[in-house]
């Protein structure tokens, strides 16, 4: 029988959402249409339209050592061209944000090639070749993995994940990179991810309503969503991992 990946345990809607996001055969719902130029602007690594600076000559132009792995692995477009490695970093609010740091790293590892994701408590960074990054970043921003109010694109000063929301339902941002246009009810970025003011605003659309967020979140939250303890299968899985890791620390030997 062919192997069918399970992606993760759990019987709740949260667990199901996690599995859906991780499964590369599941097409992520597209919610907004942020253009290539706007994605480049928000990341702030290069001016839109400018050439990609390179870290080394294109692979076709340089002598590569004889290596069986290089023959097996097809380089990504960015690697082929010798692009620099650049990053995008997200902060996700714990108040029912659609994605969350650990989940992001799993999702990206299943869906993208040539990446180096890094998970921290309240933020997640992904590094890869610049032109690959722009393609991936566009998918991360335009799909159901992103909410305009509860997900922040923040390269530094990321605090906000575990803070209460403000009265407008927005996650705290010390640098206020994104603001709500109260008339239009939409959210726009006025600074790039490291806090440098943008020449042109980048509109990321309306924030999702509470009902949609509760149905699509991948974050357990006992007060405003689904509690982690409401998912016995997940608890069993985590307990098992914890037990095995602890036992392994003592180097057990089979009798």
């Amino acid at each position: 029988m062919a192997y069918k990946p399970q992606y993760g345990p759990g019987q709740t809607q949260i667990a199901e959402n996690r599995r859906k996001q991780m499964d590369p055969t599941h097409k992520l719902e597209k919610l907004r249409d942020v253009s290539d130029k706007d994605v480049v602007l928000v990341m702030g690594h290069r001016a839109p339209g400018s050439a990609y600076p390179s870290a080394h000559p294109p692979l076709a132009e340089q002598q590569e050592p004889a290596c069986p792995i290089r023959k097996l692995v097809t380089p990504t477009d960015g690697a082929k061209a010798g692009d620099r490695v650049r990053y995008i970093q997200f902060t996700d609010s714990m108040y029912n944000a659609p994605c969350q740091p650990y989940q992001r790293s799993y999702v990206e590892s299943y869906r993208f090639r040539g990446i180096d994701p890094g998970t921290l408590s309240g933020r997640q960074i992904v590094e890869c070749r610049e032109r690959d990054l722009e393609k991936y970043a566009k998918e991360l921003i335009n799909t159901e993995l992103f909410d305009a109010a509860l997900t922040g694109i923040r390269g530094c000063t990321v605090h906000g994940h575990s803070l209460r929301l403000d009265e407008n339902g927005m996650m705290f941002d010390m640098l206020q990179r994104f603001v709500m246009d109260k008339k239009a009810g939409t959210i726009k970025y006025v600074k790039d991810q490291v806090g440098v003011p943008l020449d042109a605003e980048v509109k990321v659309g309306k924030a999702q309503d509470a009902k949609w967020l509760k149905a699509h979140t991948t974050m357990y939250h006992s007060r405003i969503g689904t509690g982690f303890r409401d998912d016995p299968e997940y608890i069993e899985y985590i307990t098992r991992i914890h037990e095995l890791r602890t036992k392994y620390g003592f180097m057990p030997k089979e009798a």
Binding site: C156, T157, D166, L175, Q176, V179, K191, G195
Partner: peptide, 16 residues
């Protein structure tokens, strides 16, 4: 003012 990162020292207008 922005206290950290590449934008350090720039004004930090904040509606709050």
């Amino acid at each position: 003012t922005v206290t950290y990162g590449p934008a350090k020292g720039l004004a930090n207008p904040h509606t709050m």
